[in-house]
Design a binder for these strands. Structure first.
Lengths: 108, 108
DNA sequence: GCCTTTCATCGTATATCTACGATTAACGAT
DNA sequence: ATCGTTAATCGTAGATATACGATGAAAGGC
């Protein structure tokens, strides 16, 4: 084995892993939907185009403040966006980011 | 608008959100790739078919124990599986689960 | 003006993640 | 049997997520 034995069983591509910004991007988007409540919220919005925060709250077995936090996480990820409408807030999906997520996962 | 104003802007589908097992499933799989290191590991395995744990460690700027934890998370999710090969362990992707992930995201 | 509705934010408690070094377990080679 | 290699697990520390009630801010109705 002189040197090191040539790693049988694994090819020998000179392991190189660029920092890879897309890994970060995918991880962030995946994180946004890494909770059942957020998946349900996202689906709800996809199915209805727009939806008030209050309605979302009444669909989930969670406190209003908790739902608001999940909405914030989804909003921070870019997957959804909220538009103020009087005292209410209408949320809707950001299709561009959703498409980006699908693309990043699809390219895996 | 007499009563309540019919929720202009929002349709009126009688909010009903089944527990939805697929939301849980998607959330779990998304969680598995919700960390840049795990995305990189997954990509590395996809690109090489199989890969020893040691090699993965040397590709990442993380301690061996940390990588092992990430591998465990990926393994628990089903996305990858490890096969013991002497003192080494060769990891590879579980295509069925990866496909499932792609499907769940694609169906969003 | 005042009050109600709607939603975000604050403060808090608990749980889980992330990372590391150290230790343990499994296997082959000598 | 002993040693070296490989990888999982343990133990720990710090950060972050999750959930809730309570409070705060913004807008419209009385």
């Amino acid at each position: 084995m002189a040197k090191k034995a040539v790693k049988k069983g694994c090819d020998s591509a000179p392991v190189k892993l660029m920092p890879d910004a897309t890994a970060d991007k995918l991880a962030k988007l995946a994180w946004a939907i890494a909770h059942p409540a957020r998946v349900q919220i996202l689906r709800l919005l996809i199915g209805r185009n727009v939806c008030m925060c209050g309605e979302i709250v009444s669909c989930l077995p969670l406190a209003q403040s908790t739902v608001s936090q999940h909405l914030k996480i989804l909003k921070d990820s870019g997957l959804i966006q909220g538009e103020v409408d009087g005292p209410k807030v209408c949320y809707c999906v950001n299709d561009a980011i959703l498409t980006k997520l699908k693309q990043l996962v699809g390219e895996l």
